[in-house]
């Protein structure tokens, strides 16, 4: 790009030269106005005036004002961000508290369940034991009664057997058997059986 500019300038300069040469009447005007030293003081003087005015306006009014606006915005954004992060922290805290409460409640519920279960199990076990004892008592009573009935029946059986045997002997052999002997024999036979 710079080379192109240089070439363009070179061609421009030659054109200027030819035009300037053609302008014989304006020959004294030829040459770049940039190198007219008589115009230097006024340019430098007004440059100084303009630049000092510009610098004073910039440094005293414009730039501090823009800087203040930018700073205010940065502060506002910063405070907004701070508030947002504070709110986030608060929300986190609330959630943590909620979760903690939830966990505690859950644990408590489990405890209640477990203790209830245990109490129920204990109660049913007790009831079962009482019932078992009762049943066992009844069984024992029944067994005792059975045993009594059995022994009574056995005792009667010997009498019945002796009577039967003595009747049978009387009928078959015509012999009267002594009831005591018959009873003894029956007892022996029963005991053997």
């Amino acid at each position: 790009m710079m080379i192109l500019r240089a070439l363009l300038l070179a061609s421009a300069a030659s054109v200027c030269l030819s035009i300037d040469m053609a302008m014989a009447a304006d020959a004294q005007k030829a040459g770049m106005p940039q190198f007219d030293l008589t115009r230097f003081p006024s340019q430098i003087f007004w440059l100084g005036v303009a630049f000092v005015v510009l610098y004073l306006i910039m440094s005293k009014v414009a730039l501090p004002r823009i800087g203040a606006v930018l700073e205010a915005r940065a502060n506002r954004i910063g405070s907004d961000l701070d508030r947002a992060s504070a709110l986030t922290a608060e929300a986190d805290q609330t959630r943590a508290a909620y979760e903690k409460t939830l966990g505690e409640s859950r644990a408590k519920a489990q405890d209640v369940g477990r203790s209830t279960e245990a109490a129920l199990a204990k109660e049913s076990a007790e009831r079962q034991a009482v019932l078992g004892n009762e049943l066992a008592g009844r069984i024992r009573d029944a067994e005792a009664r059975i045993a009594a009935a059995k022994s009574a029946a056995m005792a009667n059986l010997a009498g019945v057997a002796a009577d039967t045997a003595s009747l049978a002997v009387e009928r078959v052999a015509g012999v009267k058997v002594d009831p005591a002997e018959a009873a003894d024999a029956a007892r022996v036979a029963l005991a053997r059986a």
Binding site: R39, F45, W46, L47, A50, L54
Partner: peptide
């Protein structure tokens, strides 16, 4: 010294006025 107010000075003034 010639410190005439020129077209150059005028443009400088316009530039300063515009920027400010």
């Amino acid at each position: 010294l010639d410190i005439s107010f020129t077209n150059s000075a005028l443009m400088m003034g316009i530039a300063v006025a515009l920027i400010a």
